[in-house]
C-alpha cells in the first residue's frame, strides 16, 4: 500500500511541477502560432519578468503596483522585440528567426542583470511552499500549497486565453493570422499590430510563470535553463496546440519525477537534466507532429 501512496505522491508532485513547464511552453506556442517564430527567448523573458517584478518590490512599490509596472514593462519589451527584431526579418527562413531569438535571449539576460543585478532574489506571493495539512493528515501525501496554487493560476490563465481567443475581436484576428498570414493581411487584419499583441501576451504569460517559479526556487539565472525544459514539452505537445502543451507539460513533469524516483537511484541520480529530451526524441520517432500538432505534409 505504501508503494502506491509513494507512487501517487511522486506522480502528483510531478504533475504539479509539469504545470510550470506548461506555463513557459504556453508562451512559445502563442508566438509560434501567430508568427511562426520559435521564440527561444521565452525562458529569458520569464527570468526578466520575475527579476523586474522583484526589483520593483525592492524599490518599495506595493504588490499590485509592481505587478502593473512589470506587465507594462513586458508589453513594452514584447512590442519592441516585434518592431526591432522581427519586422526586419519578415519572410526569412524560420531557422534564421530562431537564431535571432537566441540573440535576443542574450540581450534580455544581459539587460536583466544590468538593471537588477545578479543576486538571487526571493519572491513572496503570500503562499508558503509548505505541504497542505489537510491532505497530509488524511492521505499522508505531501503536496505543496504553492504547487496547487500554481496549478490554479495556470488553469485560470488558460481559461482566460481561451476566452480571449474565441470571443474577442482581437482573438479572431489572432486565429486568422495563425491560419494564414497572407489571407489575414488581405482581408485587412493589421498583421504587425497582431504580432505586437502576441508578443505582449507572451510577455505577460512569462511574468506569471516567472513569479510562480521564483516563489519556488528564488529568482536566479538558472531559471533560463529550467525554461529550456519547455522545449521537449513543445515537441510532445506540438508547436501549435495550446491544449497540447498543457497535457505535454503534465506528461513531462510526471515522467521526469517518476524516472528520477524509480530509475534515478540506479544510475546515480540527476536524470532530470536529460530525461525530458530523451522522452521527446522517443516521442518524435512515433509521432513527429506531436500529440495535437497539425500533420505536416510536404510537397516538392
Amino acid at each position: 500500500m505504501a508503494s502506491v501512496q509513494v507512487f501517487l505522491e511522486v506522480l502528483i508532485v510531478g504533475l504539479l511541477s509539469g504545470v510550470m513547464y506548461s506555463l513557459v511552453a504556453l508562451g512559445f506556442v502563442l508566438i509560434y502560432k501567430a508568427s511562426s517564430v520559435f521564440n527561444f527567448a521565452q525562458g529569458a523573458m520569464v527570468f526578466f519578468a520575475a527579476l523586474t517584478f522583484v526589483g520593483f518590490i525592492e524599490l518599495g512599490a506595493p504588490f499590485w503596483l509592481s505587478l502593473a509596472l512589470t506587465v507594462g514593462t513586458m508589453i513594452l519589451l514584447g512590442m519592441a522585440t516585434e518592431k526591432f527584431v522581427l519586422r526586419p526579418l519578415v519572410n526569412q527562413h524560420e531557422i534564421t528567426l530562431l537564431m535571432a531569438t537566441i540573440g535576443l535571449t542574450f540581450v534580455i539576460e544581459g539587460l536583466a542583470q544590468l538593471v537588477w543585478g545578479v543576486d538571487v532574489r526571493r519572491i513572496d506571493l503570500g503562499i508558503k511552499d509548505v505541504p497542505i495539512d489537510w491532505v497530509a493528515d488524511n492521505t499522508g501525501m505531501l503536496i505543496s500549497q504553492l504547487d496547487l496554487f500554481a496549478a490554479l493560476i495556470a488553469g485560470t490563465l488558460v481559461a482566460v486565453l481561451a476566452v480571449l481567443f474565441s470571443r474577442t475581436k482581437v482573438g479572431r484576428a489572432l486565429r486568422a493570422v495563425a491560419d494564414d498570414h497572407a489571407a489575414a493581411l488581405s482581408v485587412g487584419i493589421p498583421l504587425q499590430r497582431i504580432w505586437g499583441i502576441v508578443w505582449a501576451v507572451a510577455g505577460v504569460v512569462a511574468l506569471v510563470a516567472g513569479m510562480l517559479w521564483g516563489a519556488r526556487s528564488g529568482v536566479q539565472f538558472a531559471l533560463v535553463f529550467v525554461a529550456l525544459k519547455a522545449l521537449p514539452v513543445l515537441i510532445i505537445g506540438g508547436f501549435t496546440s495550446i491544449p497540447g502543451v498543457i497535457v505535454a507539460g503534465l506528461i513531462v513533469g510526471a515522467a521526469e519525477k517518476l524516472a528520477e524516483f524509480y530509475v534515478g537511484p540506479m544510475v546515480g541520480g540527476g536524470t532530470e537534466t536529460w530525461f525530458p529530451y530523451v522522452l521527446a526524441i522517443l516521442f518524435l520517432l512515433v509521432r513527429p507532429e506531436g500529440l495535437f500538432g497539425e500533420k505536416i505534409i510536404r510537397r516538392v
Binding site: 526591432f84 527584431v85 526586419p88 526579418l89 526569412q92 534564421t96 537564431m99 535571432a100 537566441i102 540573440g103 535576443l104 535571449t105 542574450f106 540581450v107 534580455i108 539576460e109 544581459g110 539587460l111 542583470q113 544590468l114 545578479v118
Partner: peptide, 17 residues
C-alpha cells in the same frame, strides 16, 4: 559581463538582419 551579453546579442541580431 552583462554589457558583454547585450552587445553580443545585438550583434547577432544585426548580423542576421
Amino acid at each position: 559581463s552583462a554589457l558583454e551579453l547585450i552587445v553580443f546579442g545585438v550583434l547577432i541580431i544585426v548580423f542576421l538582419i
